[in-house]
Simulated assay, not measured.
Amino acid sequence: MTSGRLPPCVKNVTDRTSNPFGLRPPFDRSDPDDRTAVFGYGDANADFHVVGDYPGVHGGETTGVPFTETEDGLAVQDVVREVGFASGPRNELALENCFWSYVHMCSLPNGRRPTDEEYAELERFFDAELRAINAHILLPVGARATDRVLREYTTQRHRFDLDMAALHARDIRGRGFLVVPIQEPVEWTDGDREAIVSKIEALLASDYRQTKGVATTVG
């Protein structure tokens, strides 16, 4: 995939764990020892898609793997391990039925946050990957990822204040997806970790596979 345009059809490539669709970031503003970008990672046929914010907060600038290195990233990884999606070393793990990616995949210098313009520049890459994975359950982590997913993949963003404590582990029906937001782990209080683990386990125990465009769970 070139940096200037997206192909008309992105094929599902199952033999590549990292960057299965060959995305190429449109810019490199990373520090010298960091990866240019932290690409999507995991099972390209997954039913569960965990969406983080950017490498500086959720990790991967040196490993190239989302949800590594940082406190928030490792807390999300531990939840994914507990529900049985992940195994192996923390920085090079195997994912089954789960895919990880970031709204803003590029690394940035000196730990700074992406600007609104930088987020906008990468929107088309994130959208292409999310639609190619075509998961049933979207799990956005933190306010930025949750806002993006609710705005673009549901018709319900106007119904909610972006109160992540209230949205944490809550079912929100989308356009072909069920959205379950996750509050930033650094902000978790008693019971928050257990709540998201229990929610994912309940989904796994149900018939969560949805009719696209209806987004319902049965069971």
Rank of each mutant, 00 (worst) to 15 (best):
P26Q: 09
E71L: 14
N91M: 10
E96H: 13
G88I: 03
F85H: 03
D127R: 14
F85Q: 02
V79W: 00
G60K: 02
T115Q: 04
P109D: 04
V79T: 10
G73K: 08
D78L: 09
V80W: 08
R112D: 04
G42C: 12
Y54S: 10
R113W: 11
F48D: 09
M105D: 10
R112P: 05
V79G: 02
G60W: 00
G56V: 12
A94N: 12
D116M: 08
D72T: 12
V38R: 00
L74T: 15
E92M: 03
V83K: 01
P25L: 06
A120V: 06
L122F: 07
T62M: 06
D31Q: 07
G111P: 05
F99S: 05
F125S: 14
G40E: 01
F27H: 09
N45Y: 03
G56E: 15
G88L: 01
L122P: 06
D116W: 04
E69Y: 00
D53F: 09
Y54H: 14
V80P: 10
E82H: 01
E117V: 11
N91P: 08
G40Y: 03
Y41K: 02
G59A: 03
D28N: 12
A37G: 11
G42Y: 07
P89T: 02
G88C: 03
P26N: 04
D28V: 09
D33F: 13
E71Y: 13
G111I: 02
D127V: 15
P66E: 10
Q77N: 11
D116T: 10
R24N: 15
L122R: 04
V80E: 13
C98H: 10
C106M: 12
E123D: 15
R35A: 11
W100M: 09
D33E: 11
D78S: 15
E69Q: 02
F125L: 15
T115C: 01
F27V: 11
E71C: 11
P109I: 08
L122Q: 13
V103T: 14
L122D: 10
F48P: 09
R131N: 15
G52N: 08
N110R: 13
V65H: 00
F48T: 06
G111H: 07
R35P: 03
G52Q: 06
V51H: 05
G56M: 06
E118R: 11
N110Q: 12
T115Y: 01
G88Y: 01
